[in-house]
C-alpha cells in the first residue's frame, strides 16, 4: 500500500502571529517557520505504517514556495521515502490544494492519504475532507487511532463527547488529531541521508488545476483585546466579586 502525506510550511507554533500594519495579512518575514504540527503527526503515522510493513512506500508532498523543500526534507529525515514539491508563491486555498493532491494521489496510485486535521495558519480544517470528496473516497477525520487490515482501515475519531470508531474501505483519507502519536525527532545520520532522497519538482500547472482564489482577503486585523482585570488577595475577596457580578 502506498501512503501519501501532504505537509505545509507554516509559522512555527511557538511564534505569536503579528498582524501587518497595512492590514494585508500576518507578517511572515524573518520569523521561524516549521512543519504544521498536525502534519508532523501524519508523517509519523505514515512512517510507522512503513515500519510495520503495511505501507510499501511513503511519499511526502508539499505545495508552496521554494522553502517548502526544507519541510519536505524534514519529513524525509524521519523516514518518508520520496518527496514531491509543487512550487508556487501563491497562498493557495484548501480547494486548490485538494485538487492538486487528487491529481497526485491518482498519479501515484496511493491507497491512503494522511493529512493534518487543520493547518495552524489559516485554520480552515478543510483540505483532507475536500480531497476525500474529490476522490469519492471515504474519510476518517480527527484520528486518534488507526488500524489497517486487508482492504480496510479502522479509525477511532476524536468527536465532541468522546470517541467514535468508523471502518473505511480503502482507498481512504485520514486526518490526524493530536493524540494519534508522538512524532519522533530526526537523527543526525538520517538528516544526512535525507539530503540524498529524491524530490520531484512540479508546478500547479503540471496538474492542470485552476488555482484562482475564491476568497479575497478584505483585511486582517488584531482581535479585540481583553484588558487585564484586577488581582484579588483572597478566596473570600474573589467570592465577593463574583457574587457582585451575579455569576455565582
Amino acid at each position: 500500500m502506498k501512503v501519501l502525506v501532504p505537509v505545509k510550511r507554516v509559522l512555527d507554533y511557538n511564534v505569536k502571529a503579528r498582524v501587518k500594519a497595512d492590514q494585508s495579512g500576518v507578517d511572515l518575514s524573518n520569523v521561524k517557520m516549521s512543519m504544521n504540527p498536525f502534519d508532523e503527526i501524519s508523517v509519523e503515522e505514515a512512517v510507522r505504517l512503513k515500519e510495520a510493513g503495511t505501507a510499501t512506500e511513503a511519499v511526502v508532498v508539499s505545495i508552496g514556495p521554494a522553502k517548502a523543500q526544507e519541510t519536505i526534507r524534514t519529513a524525509l529525515a524521519v523516514g518518508m521515502d520520496r518527496g514531491i514539491h509543487v512550487q508556487t508563491d501563491e497562498d493557495l486555498e484548501p480547494l486548490a490544494i485538494a485538487k492538486i493532491l487528487k491529481a497526485i494521489a491518482e498519479e501515484e496510485g496511493a491507497q491512503l492519504v494522511i493529512t493534518g486535521k487543520q493547518a495552524i495558519d489559516n485554520d480552515y480544517g478543510a483540505t483532507g475532507s475536500m480531497l476525500a470528496a474529490l476522490l469519492d473516497w471515504p474519510q476518517g477525520t480527527f484520528a486518534n487511532t488507526v488500524e489497517t487490515s486487508g482492504d480496510s482501515i479502522t479509525v477511532k475519531r476524536e468527536v465532541d463527547g468522546g470517541l467514535q470508531t468508523v471502518k473505511l474501505t480503502l482507498p481512504a483519507v485520514v486526518t490526524t488529531d493530536l493524540r494519534l502519536n508522538e512524532p519522533r525527532y530526526a537523527r543526525l545520520p538520517d538528516i544526512m541521508k535525507a539530503k540524498k532522497k529524491q524530490i520531484d519538482a512540479k508546478t500547479p500547472a503540471d496538474y492542470g488545476v485552476d488555482t484562482a482564489p475564491r476568497l479575497t482577503t478584505v483585511k486582517v486585523t488584531e482581535p479585540a483585546g481583553r484588558s487585564a482585570g484586577i488581582k484579588v488577595e483572597s478566596v473570600e475577596a474573589l467570592v465577593g466579586k463574583l457574587k457582585t457580578e451575579g455569576v455565582i
Partner: peptide
C-alpha cells in the same frame, strides 16, 4: 463577506467570497 479567526484567533480575517 465574513469575519473569521486565523492563527488561533491571534488575527481576524475579513474575507469576501466570489
Amino acid at each position: 463577506t465574513f469575519v473569521r479567526p486565523i492563527y488561533a484567533g491571534n488575527a481576524m480575517a475579513t474575507v469576501k467570497s466570489s
